[in-house]
Simulated scan of single mutants.
Amino acid sequence: MLYLEDIKLGDCFISREYEMTLEEIKQFAHAYDPQIFHTDEDQAKAHPIFQGIAASGWHTSAVTMRLWTECFPVAYGLIGSESSIRWPRPTRPNDKIHVEVEIIAITPSKTKTDRAIVTYVTQTLNQNNDVLLLSTTKIVVFKKEFKAA
C-alpha cells in the first residue's frame, strides 16, 4: 500500500493489459448505456461518428477504475474528490487497454496535517497507443501517521 510519503511528483504507474471483448461491451451497454452504437453491430456501422460498435465511455471508465486499483494501490483506497474525463477515441471490441498514471500535484491539507490531495493524469491507451480516455483526478491520500477512528 502507498502512503503520502511514498508518492512524489512525476511518479508514474502503469497497469496490466485488459482486453475489451465484444460480449462484455454489449453486456455493459445493455445494463448501463443501451444505445445502438454499443449494442447492435449492424446499426452501429451506419452511425455517422462511430461507424462500428464502440464501448460505452462509462465502460472504458469502469475498466480504467479497475486498472487504477491494481497499479496504484493507495492506503485506504482511491478516495476521489474530483475528476474530469475525456474520451478522444472510441474503445473497440478486442482493444487491449492499459492505463498510465502520472502524479502532477500534491497539495497538503490546510486543516488536517495527516493527508493531502494528490492530483494525477491518466491516459487509457489501446494496443496501438491511441488515447481512449484522458482524465485528471484528485484523490485524498493519507500519511503513515493517520489513525482511522
Rank of each mutant, 00 (worst) to 15 (best):
S109V: 01
T64F: 05
A31F: 04
T60R: 01
P88S: 12
L78F: 09
M20L: 09
F50R: 07
H59Q: 09
E24N: 06
A105I: 13
H59R: 01
N94T: 11
F37I: 13
D114T: 14
G80P: 10
T113K: 15
E100I: 11
G77E: 07
S56W: 02
V99P: 14
P48R: 05
T60M: 09
W87C: 14
E100R: 15
P88D: 09
E17A: 00
A44N: 01
D42L: 11
C71Q: 15
F37T: 05
S83F: 14
I79S: 08
R66S: 08
F28C: 03
I85R: 15
A75H: 09
D95K: 03
A44P: 04
T21A: 09
F50Q: 07
E23P: 02
R89K: 15
Y18H: 11
W58D: 12
E70M: 00
D95M: 05
D114K: 09
Q35D: 00
A44T: 11
L22S: 12
I103K: 12
C71T: 10
F72N: 02
I104G: 09
T91M: 04
K112V: 03
I25E: 06
T111I: 01
E24Q: 13
W87L: 15
M20H: 02
F37C: 03
E23C: 03
N94W: 04
R89H: 13
I106Y: 07
Y18G: 02
E24Y: 00
G80N: 12
I97D: 10
E41P: 01
T21S: 07
A75R: 12
E82V: 03
C71E: 10
L22K: 13
K26C: 06
Q27N: 08
K45M: 09
W68E: 01
M65H: 13
Q27G: 00
I49V: 11
D95C: 05
Y76G: 14
W68F: 12
H38R: 04
E82P: 04
S56Y: 00
P108F: 09
V63E: 04
R66D: 02
I49E: 11
